[in-house]
């Protein structure tokens, strides 16, 4: 009873705080200082059409590197938790972690299998397209990586016993990450600072090969994110 009252009190309090925010909220009427700078100078400084990409990859590149690290950490953590030592049979009672699912897993239907064999590569290519064009149109490494990962999900669905080539996955994961950091370093050495994409020419606006190293970096991010997400999915799927 006391607990219910407390919960009600908490909700009421935060509702009141949120209400204060809503009533006081006026919304932006114009761009703030840094946003204006990005919109005005972004094109000439970085040559990217998609300013969000410019921000993500360059202006706030350190955030993105951190974000990739978070994903990497989560993948490592999940791998550590679920991969390290087989999930043994119940230690203190209860249902063993989905072991019997392995047996009950049915083979997918013929149509799904064949269909996915055709669709999966297409989706993967689409994913690549998304991150390669990240500096020009909406989308980029994260979205592209996620799309690639969804292709893999489809693969998992259609081929329940499909096993990924872990070597390739691991190498992709490691190398894309390392090269990403390496490109950042190149920015430090050749251009203005760590993760500065301008060590490659800015190029002609609107082309694939423009905006300095942004497309390269975003592609690497895409590969990395894709590999991490696939790794996570693989770990979560596998009842080890």
């Amino acid at each position: 009873m006391i607990k219910r009252a407390l919960i009600f009190l908490v909700l009421a309090f935060f509702a009141w705080q949120f209400l204060l925010m809503v009533t006081g909220w006026e919304g932006l009427s114009g761009l703030g200082e840094i946003a204006r700078h990005y919109m005005e100078k972004g094109r000439e400084e970085l040559g990217a059409a998609n300013i969000v990409t410019a921000i993500v990859v360059t202006y706030r590149g350190l955030d993105t590197l951190g974000e990739v690290s978070v994903l990497f950490l989560a993948a490592a953590g999940i791998g550590f938790l679920l991969g390290a030592g087989r999930l043994s049979r119940k230690q203190d009672g209860g249902n063993a972690g989905g072991l019997e699912n392995e047996k009950t897993r049915r083979k997918a239907s013929e149509i799904l299998e064949t269909g996915s064999d055709i669709v999966v590569p297409a989706i993967a290519v689409f994913g690549v397209y998304i991150f390669v064009n990240g500096h020009l149109s909406p989308g980029g490494g994260f979205q592209g990586g996620a799309v690639i990962a969804s292709a893999i999900v489809l693969l998992f669905l259609s081929h329940p016993f499909y096993s990924l080539n872990h070597g390739v996955l691991k190498v992709t994961e490691s190398l894309s990450g390392t090269v990403y950091v390496g490109l950042g370093l190149l920015g430090l050495i050749l251009a203005g600072g760590f993760l500065d994409a301008r060590f490659l020419p800015v190029g002609e606006f609107g082309r694939i090969l423009s905006a300095g190293a942004i497309p390269v970096i975003y592609s690497l991010i895409g590969l990395k994110v894709g590999a991490e997400l696939v790794g996570i999915l693989e770990q979560m799927r596998r009842p080890s």
Binding site: P138, G139, G140, Q143, A146, S150, V153, L229, L233
Partner: peptide, 15 residues
């Protein structure tokens, strides 16, 4: 916010 929309759809809603 198309970038966010794509991300949310692919990662938040999908994966």
């Amino acid at each position: 916010a198309p970038d966010v929309a794509m991300t949310e759809a692919a990662i938040g809603a999908g994966l």
